[in-house]
C-alpha cells in the first residue's frame, strides 16, 4: 500500500527537483554566458566621463525609484518593493529553506521565527495580488502585458501561498500540501530561465551597462 501524497512529495523532492535544478542552473548559465560571449562592439571614442565608476554606481542607484515615480504609480512601486522584500524574507530566512540551500551549497545562516516568516508571506501575497490587479486594471499596461507576464506573477505567488497553507495545515492533508508547495517551486525553477524572471540574475549586468554607456558620454544615469 502506498500513500499517494507521500509519493507525490517524493517525486517533487526527488526526480522533478533534479530536473528543475538542471533546467534552472543550466538555463540561467546559458543565457548569461551567451550575453557575455556576444559582447558589444568596441567603442573607439575617448570616454568623456568615468564609465566603470558610473556603471557600478548605477547598479545601486536604480534600486531607488526615480523622483516622482511613487506619485505616478504608487501601487506598482510600493507593491514591487513589498513583494520583493517579503518574498526574500520568506525564502531566505525560513529554516527549512536554509536547510535546502545548505544541502545544495553548504552555505547556512540563522533563520527567524514563524511570526516574521508568515507575516512577510501574507504581506508579499497581498502586494503580489495588488500588482496583478493594477496590471490588469490600467488599460495601457494591460495592452503591454502578455500571458507570460501573468503566468510569471502567478507562479511567483504560488510557492508563497502553498507554503503558507502547508505550514499552517490548511485545506486537507499537510503532506499533500507540502508536495504541492515543492511542486510549485519546481515549476517556478523550470520556467525561470525562459521568462522575465531572469531579471533576478541580469539586473546588475543591465544596470551596469546602462550606467557605463551614460558614463562614457559624460551624462547622468
Amino acid at each position: 500500500m502506498n500513500n499517494p501524497y507521500f509519493d507525490l512529495l517524493m517525486f517533487a523532492r526527488g526526480p522533478l527537483f533534479d530536473l528543475a535544478l538542471l533546467v534552472f542552473v543550466a538555463g540561467i548559465l546559458i543565457r548569461i554566458v551567451e550575453i557575455l560571449v556576444l559582447g558589444r562592439k568596441k567603442d573607439f571614442s575617448k570616454a568623456k566621463g568615468k564609465p566603470v565608476q558610473q556603471g557600478i554606481k548605477t547598479i545601486f542607484t536604480r534600486t531607488l525609484p526615480r523622483p516622482g515615480a511613487i506619485k505616478a504609480n504608487p501601487i506598482t512601486i510600493v507593491g514591487g518593493y513589498v513583494f520583493h522584500i517579503g518574498f526574500f524574507i520568506a525564502f531566505l530566512l525560513f529554516v527549512p529553506h536554509i536547510a535546502l540551500i545548505e544541502a545544495l551549497t553548504g552555505l547556512s545562516w540563522p533563520g527567524v521565527g514563524r511570526v516574521i516568516i508568515e507575516s512577510a508571506t501574507v504581506i508579499a501575497v497581498i502586494a503580489g495580488l495588488a500588482l496583478l490587479y493594477t496590471r490588469w486594471k490600467d488599460p495601457v499596461r494591460r495592452k503591454l502585458t502578455t500571458w507570460v507576464d501573468y503566468l510569471v506573477l502567478i507562479l511567483s505567488l504560488l510557492p508563497l501561498i502553498t507554503g503558507y497553507v502547508a505550514v499552517n495545515k490548511l485545506f486537507g492533508d499537510p503532506t499533500f500540501m507540502m508536495a504541492l508547495h515543492i511542486l510549485s517551486v519546481d515549476i517556478l525553477m523550470i520556467v525561470f530561465p525562459f521568462t522575465k524572471l531572469m531579471h533576478a540574475f541580469t539586473f546588475a549586468m543591465a544596470r551596469y551597462y546602462n550606467g557605463s554607456i551614460q558614463g562614457r558620454k559624460g551624462a547622468e544615469s
Binding site: 527537483f17 533534479d18 538542471l22 527549512p96 535546502l100 545544495l104
Partner: peptide, 12 residues
C-alpha cells in the same frame, strides 16, 4: 531535512 532534495541533485 524534509525540505532538502532527495534525489541525485548533486550530480545533476
Amino acid at each position: 531535512p524534509l525540505s532538502a532534495p532527495a534525489g541525485e541533485y548533486r550530480r545533476m
